[in-house]
Design a protein around this nucleic acid. Structure first.
Lengths: 67, 67
DNA sequence: ACATTTTGTCAATTATATTTTACTTTTTGT
DNA sequence: ACAAAAAGTAAAATATAATTGACAAAATGT
């Protein structure tokens, strides 16, 4: 898995820290960090929560052409 | 979580059984069944695999407005 | 009606997502 | 340069996704 820079950018666009995003979606800072780092396979529910907070779609933040 | 009828419909459109879809995405029939039943929180990687096989996007098959 | 396929469901086990605690490194602002 | 905040990282524990095997219920075709 590659780094999720789209997520990182969307978070920056909202001026949120990893800790703030984590709290907003009910996860931990480490989980958010791991997702951005790209070495993670989060659940769809968490992905949806992140999308809602950042105002993005699943396709925008979590699609990958190659797995 | 509600039943995932969009997934069920997309699978029907491809004329695939749950078992066939499961094999195509490298999962078990029970997992596919549970996802369609809606009482499940699959990983994003499995969701992406399903989308690729069925020719749909994450937003089309796995978005939910209310959680 | 009958046989066959598909779906639904359950219990037990395994794999892994997520948490917790803690520490180091990098970034940001003054 | 310094202090503070944010990000990166790691090990151990917990929660839960996913598998395996097996059987019942429903759907489909002849």
């Amino acid at each position: 898995m590659a780094k999720n820079l789209k997520l990182k950018a969307a978070r920056a666009e909202k001026d949120m820290t990893q800790a703030q995003l984590a709290q907003a979606v009910g996860a931990t800072r480490q989980t958010i960090n791991a997702i951005e780092k790209g070495e993670y396979n989060p659940t769809i529910r968490l992905c949806r929560a992140i999308c809602r907070v950042l105002g993005k779609t699943l396709d925008e933040l979590f699609w990958e052409d190659e797995e």
